[in-house]
């Protein structure tokens, strides 16, 4: 009747954590209504009626001597002992719990002993509370509410991150090799969260990194813009000049205007823009000499929507 239908072995881990994290002292009723051994059974009945409880621990000081339950009271009534003291009518061998035990113990005890309540003792064997199935159910529901709220807050956020359109912006500065690659690293992280195929992430990272390095190496600085949509990523690299004299040449593999210093760092091999073109599904470049360059490329993030064979 007082069994709590909660499996303490293989429930979901959230529930298990809850019943192991919660201590009996967090759940029990601390304001215990007690009586003494020479209190009459009638007096105890009054307490139960007034307090709407079904069991009263019998104490001497704060030491637990026994308990009078509804059943004890009924049998006293049946035997005409209602005016007698609790001393001979109480249950003596009381099963108790300790306040520092996890809640799972109380649930197991309810199951095992079929009592509706257990007095709770502290480490010094002093009565400090009482725990009923009602206390347990109330606290579990409260705790589950808190936990569910927490879990619910997690779900919509990750969902939005997974599918929703996201825009990201990064500034690039001339010869700022210190921060070169930051935009690409960030974008790669964001794409990983969206669980996009590794190979496609790599193509996007290649395009992004080359465009970023181009701005650092060749431009007066610029901006990298990323539009993450449900089925594609668009990268727009717009710089503040100086513009490309001959766009066709710039797109030729091996052609580079980089100086020796830049080449010594491993850049300027004339592979940047050709690499971007190779990994992109759509590619566009516009440059006005003396003004600036805008390169945009689009990569589909879902293979079935890919146009053409790349890589």
């Amino acid at each position: 009747m007082h069994v709590i239908p909660l499996n303490t072995d293989n429930s979901p881990s959230v529930i298990l954590e809850m019943i192991f994290r919660l201590k009996i002292k967090n759940v029990m009723t601390k304001d215990v209504k007690t009586a003494e051994r020479n209190s009459s059974m009638r007096h105890i009945q009054e307490i139960m009626k007034q307090e709407r409880i079904t069991g009263v621990p019998i104490v001497e000081g704060s030491r637990l001597m026994g308990i009078v339950s509804m059943e004890d009271l009924l049998s006293a009534m049946e035997q005409g002992k209602i005016e007698e003291s609790a001393r001979h009518n109480m249950t003596r061998n009381v099963i108790v719990l300790e306040e520092d035990m996890p809640l799972s113990f109380a649930i197991n005890y309810m199951d095992k002993y079929h009592y509706g309540r257990f007095p709770v003792l502290n480490i010094h064997k002093k009565l400090v509370g009482i725990i009923t199935s009602r206390d347990i159910v109330n606290h579990l529901l409260l705790e589950m509410n808190t936990e569910m709220t927490r879990l619910e807050e997690l779900i919509p956020k990750t969902k939005a991150e997974n599918d929703g359109p996201v825009k990201m912006n990064f500034m690039c500065h001339r010869f700022d090799f210190e921060n070169a690659g930051r935009a690409s690293t960030e974008i790669k992280k964001a794409l990983k969260k969206r669980q996009i195929d590794r190979k496609i992430i790599r193509r996007i990272a290649v395009a992004s990194y080359e465009l970023e390095i181009n701005q650092v190496v060749h431009s007066k600085g610029g901006r990298m813009k990323f539009d993450l949509n449900s089925d594609s990523v668009k990268i727009t690299a717009a710089d503040n000049g100086p513009g490309i004299e001959n766009v066709e040449k710039a797109l030729t593999e091996g052609f580079s205007t980089a100086n020796d210093w830049i080449r010594s760092l491993g850049f300027g091999a004339g592979m940047g823009l050709p690499n971007v073109m190779r990994v992109s599904d759509e590619f566009n470049i516009e440059s006005i000499a003396g003004e600036g360059t805008v390169v945009s490329c689009l990569i589909y993030t879902h293979p079935e929507k890919e146009k053409g064979e790349k890589e």
């Binding site: 090799f177 690659g181 690293t185 790669k188 990194y209 390095i213 760092l265 850049f267 091999a269």
Partner: peptide, 29 residues
């Protein structure tokens, strides 16, 4: 680095004389 970026296989070791921060960025990407 552009060659590494474009052609190096994943799960590999990069053997190089380019010892600076950008090598790490490329390797990571």
């Amino acid at each position: 680095l552009s060659d590494v970026m474009g052609n190096a296989p994943e799960d590999s070791v990069l053997i190089t004389i380019q010892a600076h921060k950008n090598t790490v960025a490329v390797a990571s990407l």
